[in-house]
C-alpha cells in the first residue's frame, strides 16, 4: 500500500486553519505612533458601541425595580440586588428559565450535531461521486440557500399541523436538521481536500463506501465540519420565528421565546423588568463567552467554502 495515511493528509491540508496566523500585512512593518493612536482610538470607540447594551443590562440586573427607573442607568445604585434578582430568575415559576435554557441546548446542540453530519454526508456524496442527477440535486439545494427561512416557516407550520407535529419538540428540531448552506460548504471542502486515490485505496482494501466516508471523509473534512456545526448552532439558538410559529406550550419554549414571554408582561407587572433583565444577562453571558472562545475556529471552513464558490 503506497497511499498516504489519512492523518498525514489532514496535516498537509491544515495550512489554512491555524488560529493564530501571523498577520502578513503587518510583518516587518512599523506604523507611526500617531496612526496607532488614531486607529486604536477608533477601534475603542466602536468597541464601546458593541459593549454598551451589555454593560447596561449588567447594571440593570443589579437593581431593584424602583431603582431601575429612579437611578442613572449607566451606574449602580446603592442597593445591590443582583443576587436576589438572579435567584428570582432561576426559581420563578418552578425554574422555568432553566427549562427554557435546557430546551435551547437540546434544539441547538442536537440539531446542529445531526445537521452537520447530514450536510457532511450529502456534500461528500456530491463532491466525490459522479452520478446522474448530481447537478440537478445540487442546484435544487443551492436554491434552498437563497430562500428565506421565515418565508418557509409559515407553510411548514401548515404542513406540520396536518401531520400533527406542531407544538412538539420535533416541530422545531426537524427543520433544524437541514442546512443547505452547510452542505454547500461541505461539498466545496470535500472537493478540495478528500483525495480520490485515498478512497480508491480504501476500496481495494475492501472497505465499504459508507465506511470510507466515516473513516476517510469525515476525518479530512473536520475543519469544515466545525464551521458548519457552529454556524448551525448559532442559527438554531437565535431562531425565533420558527418556534414562535410552531410552539404554544411554554414548557417547550427555547430561551428566546421564553424571555420575550416575560418581557411582554412588563406593562402590567413591573417586576417582570427584573426577571427580563436578569434572564437576558444570564443568557448573554454563556453565549458571549462561547463567541469569544469560538471565533478563532470560525475562519477555516468559511473562507475555504463560502468565498471560493
Amino acid at each position: 500500500m503506497t497511499a498516504p495515511s489519512a492523518p498525514e493528509q489532514t496535516a498537509a491540508r491544515r495550512t489554512d486553519g491555524q488560529p493564530a496566523a501571523a498577520n502578513k500585512m503587518t510583518e516587518g512593518v512599523r506604523s507611526s505612533p500617531a496612526s496607532t493612536i488614531v486607529v486604536t482610538g477608533l477601534l475603542v470607540v466602536v468597541a464601546l458601541y458593541f459593549l454598551v447594551p451589555i454593560y447596561w443590562v449588567f447594571v440593570a440586573a443589579t437593581k431593584s425595580t424602583d431603582d431601575l427607573f429612579a437611578t442613572n442607568g449607566f451606574w449602580f445604585s446603592s442597593d445591590f440586588a443582583l443576587w436576589s434578582n438572579l435567584s428570582q430568575v432561576l426559581t420563578f415559576d418552578n425554574g422555568i428559565f432553566l427549562r427554557w435554557f435546557l430546551n435551547s441546548v437540546i434544539y441547538a446542540g442536537l440539531g446542529a450535531l445531526l445537521a452537520t453530519y447530514f450536510a457532511a454526508a450529502g456534500g461528500y456524496a456530491l463532491a466525490k461521486y459522479n452520478f446522474r442527477g448530481r447537478n440537478f440535486v445540487f442546484g435544487t439545494i443551492l436554491a434552498g440557500v437563497l430562500v428565506p427561512g421565515t418565508a418557509i416557516a409559515l407553510p411548514l407550520f401548515l404542513l406540520f399541523a396536518n401531520l400533527g407535529l406542531t407544538n412538539t419538540y420535533f416541530s422545531v428540531l426537524i427543520p433544524s436538521l437541514v442546512s443547505p448552506f452547510g452542505l454547500f460548504l461541505c461539498r466545496i471542502y470535500a472537493d478540495a481536500t478528500v483525495s480520490s486515490s485515498l478512497m480508491e485505496a480504501a476500496r481495494i482494501d475492501g472497505a465499504s463506501e459508507l465506511r470510507i466516508f466515516h473513516t476517510v471523509g469525515l476525518r479530512v473534512m473536520t475543519p469544515a465540519l466545525v464551521t458548519v456545526f457552529l454556524f448551525q448552532l448559532v442559527g438554531i439558538w437565535n431562531n425565533y420565528f420558527l418556534p414562535l410559529v410552531m410552539l404554544s406550550d411554554t414548557n417547550l419554549y427555547p430561551i428566546t421565546l421564553g424571555l420575550n414571554n416575560w418581557r411582554s408582561q412588563v406593562d402590567r407587572l413591573p417586576e417582570f423588568y427584573e426577571l427580563t433583565t436578569g434572564g437576558v444577562l444570564l443568557s448573554v453571558i454563556p453565549l458571549g463567552i462561547a463567541m469569544i472562545v469560538l471565533q478563532r475556529y470560525w475562519r477555516g471552513g468559511l473562507t475555504e467554502g463560502a468565498v471560493k464558490g
Binding site: 466602536v46 468597541a47 459593549l51 451589555i54 428566546t256 424571555l259 458571549g288 469569544i292
Partner: peptide
C-alpha cells in the same frame, strides 16, 4: 475582533429586548 463578533451570539430577540 472578539468584542465585535460577540453580539452575533446574542439572539435577535434578546438584542431587541436589550
Amino acid at each position: 475582533r472578539a468584542v465585535y463578533f460577540m453580539p452575533y451570539g446574542v439572539p435577535g430577540v434578546i438584542a431587541t429586548i436589550l
